[in-house]
Structure formats: structure tokens, C-alpha cells
Nucleic acid binder design. Sequence first.
RNA 1: GCUGAUGUGGCUCAAUGGCAGAGCAUCUCACUCGUAAUGAGAAGGUUGUGGGUUCGAUUCCCACCAUCAGCUCCA
Length: 586
Amino acid sequence: MSEENNQYTFENPEYRATYWHTCSHVMAQAVKRLWPEVKLAIGPSIDEGWYYDMDAPFAFTPEHLEQIEGEMRKICKEKLKLERFELPRPEALTFMEERDEKYKVELINDLPEDAAISFYKQGEFTDLCAGPHLDSTGRIKGNALKLTACNAAYWRGDSSRETLQRIYGIAFPKKDELDEYLAKIEEAKKRDHRRLGKELGLFMLRDEGPGFPFFLPKGMTLKNTLLDYWRKVHKKYGYVEISTPIMLNRQLWERSGHWDHYKNNMYTTVIDEVDFAVKPMNCPGGMLVYASEPHSYRDLPLRVGEIGLVHRHELSGALHGLFRVRCFNQDDAHVFMTREQMQDVIQETVRLFDEVYSVFGLSYTIELSTMPEDHIGTVEEWERNQDILKAAITAMGKEFVINEGDGAFYGPKLDFHLADSLGRTWQCGTIQLDSQLPERFELEYTGEDGQKHRPVMIHRVVLGSIERFIGVITEHFAGAFPAWLAPVQVKLLPVTDRAAEYAAKVSAQLDAQGFRVEVDGRNEKIGKKIREATLEKVPFMLVVGDRDMENGTVSVRRRSGEDLGAMSLEDFAALLDGEVKEMTIK
RNA sequence: GCUGAUGUGGCUCAAUGGCAGAGCAUCUCACUCGUAAUGAGAAGGUUGUGGGUUCGAUUCCCACCAUCAGCUCCA
């Protein structure tokens, strides 16, 4: 297909965005027809569809959304031409002031001096907009659009300003495509880790501890398996492991800057009349470990890992299954180094990330987060460190986007985002470059010259939080974890209770070889046992009955339904062992 | 934290201003069975919590808690 042919199809992201953007205008027009008192804010197209933020004196309900959809269909049928025109600033302001559109007035006032102020008019409706747009509302397929949700959003993303109502919509050129899209969303919801976590017995959340997850036996096995792998791969990359206390005194947190810059998120208590804080980060403890003995330049870079349990007081409305919790384990590490080693260490860390993510088949996007308003250290230092991060990944040929002002208070960072089943992304890995804490803790090493020097450091996590990562991979694998990760790798299914003893013997042998095995010894039909083991997403089922007892075999079935037939226990163990090894460390 | 919605046995979901019901799971009994649900029976709930309205509230109202969607924030 030539590019020309592609221009006006949904394959073309620009056309798609234009289509959705025009949809947002049609939606705004429909709302203004139904409720002229509603004030309009902004209505862009997004990755999937569009939204429009509005200020209405009532709350939109699903019934309102249907009404709006109906009016939108009418507008599509009316085939209104979209006409662009520009106005000089004073006329533009008057235009919107007359219509009492205060948000539009604010937008116009904030446009740069020399900006062209453009409007799009369709029928009786005119909106401030840079465009581009379709040429007619008739281009939009009225029966292939749907308003999917209505939620709150702050005007200009500022939580101190007006709360607006954001209506989301999606549309396609054909009804079939809309139906397919909606079905896909429904399918994705089945992979939600909160649902699978319950179904598979991985974890639970209780009202008694909002945001504080409980790990159940299967989830704990998964977590431990993940940590075993983490330890192996970090050993390979030259890391050592430590553990630092969960609570430390106020003086330490003042020194690190957390007391001044992070206190809102910290849980504090008083012990023997002294303020203490539960750690929200592991770094200050790590600083104390580094400072506890002298270091030589020969020891650098020094890679110190810690699976650290941290607590952060997140806003109640931000909690989300395992993705956003108040208590989590970071697979943290601090790497101390000389200034000259910075770029190499960052690149080595990115290579470690690539190795880990590839084992799970995860792909990521990188964001470079720059200096926030609330920070420590000089602007020059920040810029220098930002440039090093940029140079390091650019040299590796990696793409990244800049996330302005989102760095940690002590330094800029590279964030690695992974997607969940609905395509929402969650920050997992991060590499944070820090020359502030070494300063504050007066860290030193002795150089080749015999003089004391100050090291710099990175804070980094690969998985991010073990909890969040478990959520991400649960959705990624739809609960069907590869054999090396599966909480139960093999389920023995005796056909009758005559085979119970044989099943126990086979189970014991596999267990002795380090495999995770369960026996379903219930007095149920084999079909039912298979069904349930399949729903539990156990990678291998071993059916054992009279025939197997006689021949000394096991009948192997995969959770996919594939029947591998009868084989000796040795052959099966070799097969399983192969699958486990294939997926883990190289 | 903000806006809106939701909250009924372990799970999924019904119902009603007047005795709260089903399926799955659980327990008991029978069946001993070869690749996605054997049958019968039993037990299990002060309808999230606390107030209010009412002769009577699970249902209506208020507050709180939690969850869900999004915003804000963030691993």
C-alpha cells in the first residue's frame, strides 16, 4: 500500500488523531446543544480516542452520555462543514467572553504574543482550536462511536484549581472495529492482576490495611522465585547484598534531606522521646554502610544491593492493587563510583535492565526526569548529571522522552515504564544519578593520588517494586507464568485412589529434585481435576492411573491442552528442567 | 486528597420499605472413574461500619470506611 492510499485511513496515526479530535468537537457541540450552561475547557485526542474537560453544574451520568451520543449522531448526519478562521487577540477574547467561556479566555490569555489564534466553526458551534480537523462532521461514522467514561480532572492538571468533568470517547470508521475494540478491552480486564491475584491465590488486600498487601503461599513462592533470580543475575553483575533497618532516627532523615523534602509521605513515630521515621527509601541506610569503612578507588564502582522494605504514605485515591501500594520491597542498589565511571556504570546498568526485562519478554519506554521545583543541589550540577544520563542512553541507541521536573529531589533519573493489560504504563526500573547524598554524608574514597575524593552514586531498581513487578508480569502472562516462575510447576492427578500412593512417590521424587509439585488427591473424576488444574494455570499436569503404575510412567499434559502422552519420570524431569533453565539466567 | 460510582455468605451475582436467594467453593454420603465440571444431602449472611427517618430499613437519608474509574502524586 502506498503512503498516499494510507493518508486517510486509521492506519495513519495523524489521520486517526484528527478524526478523534473532530469527534471531541462534535461531542462538545452536542453537550452545548443539550446543556448550553456547560463551560468548555480542553478536548484533545489521546492514544485511544479523545476526551473533553467540561465544567457542568451537575454530574454527568451514563444516561447523560447516551444522550450526548445520540446528539453526536445527529451532528454527524447534518454533515456540518468545519471552517477555520483566525481572530486578533482582542476579538478572540471578546468572542469567548461574550459566550462566557472563562476557560477559553484563560487559554487565549496564555497563548504566546505572536501566536495565531485560530477557531474552528461547525454549524452553530465554534471552538478555540489549533486544529487540524476533518472537513465535515459527516466524515464521522455516527454508529461507530462511544463515550466510554466520565471522570474528574483538574483544570490544567492543578489539584488546587477547579475540578472539571472529563468525558472520554472512542470512535472508528466501522461499527465492527468499535465492537472489536470494546471486546478487546473486556478481554484485557480478565487479565487484571487484582482479579488473577484472587483467582490464583497470589495475594490479598484487606480493609484492615489499605495499600498494605498480604502475600499468600502461592504469591510468596512467586516472589521468592523472582528474588532467587534477581540475586543470581546481580551476582553476575558484581553486586553484593546488604540489609538496612526499617526505622532510623530523625537526625538521619534530616541529613539525607528526606525530613525536609519527603516528610508528607513518611510514617513517623516516637521512641524514647526521639522522632523516628519508617524508611520510604533505602538510600540513607546505604550511605551509613558505605561510610562505615574506608574505601579505595580500587573498590569502585562498588555495587551494593538491598531488597529493602519501604513504606510510603500514598494518597488513598492513588492506591491500585499491587501497582500502587503503601508498603513494598524495592530491589534497590546503590553504586558508588568516580565521576569518570559514571557513563560506563549507567550503561552497564541499562544492559542489566535489558537482560532482566528480556527474560520476561517485557518491553519498556524510557523517560528522562529532570529537576523538580523542590530539589537540593545547584542547577549546574543538575544539568551536568542530566547530560550524562542523556549521553549514556543516546550512545546505546535508546529512545527516550523528557519528563520535565519529575526527578527525585536529589537528582535526575531515567525511568523505565512497563505497560499493564490495558496499556496503562507503570514505572518499574529507574536509574537515579546522585551527587548530593555523597556530599551530605561526606562519603569518601582514597584515590590513586593518596588524596581523599568524593564519590558519586546512582540509586537504581530494575523490577522497581517486587509488588508492582509481580502485578505487571501477572497481567503480561495472563496468570500463566512460565514454568520457571509458576508457583506450582507440576500437578499430579491420580485417576483413582489406587494410584494415590504412586502419585505420592512421584511427587516426592520431583520435590527432591527441587520442582514445585502438588498432588490433587481428591476423590473427583479426572476430567474435573484437569479442568481445575488448567484454570489454576499449572504448566504441567501428570495424570497417573493403573496403566502408568504398571509401566512406571506418567502421562503428561500441558496447560495449553497439549497431550504429550506417557513417558518415564526421568524423561519428564529432563523436559521440565530444560524449560526452567531455558528461561532463567544465561 | 479531589470528582463520580459501588459495597448482599469464601467467590460470582439475584431480590425486596414487610421471613434475604442461586451457582461455584466448603462439609457428609454414594460412585473408583484415563485428559476441561458425577450425583444426592447439609451447613454457611445482623446485606461494609455508625447514626437517622419509619410500626418495620438490606432497600430511603446522613456521616465514616473500603473498593473501582479518572485526576493529582508516584516504584
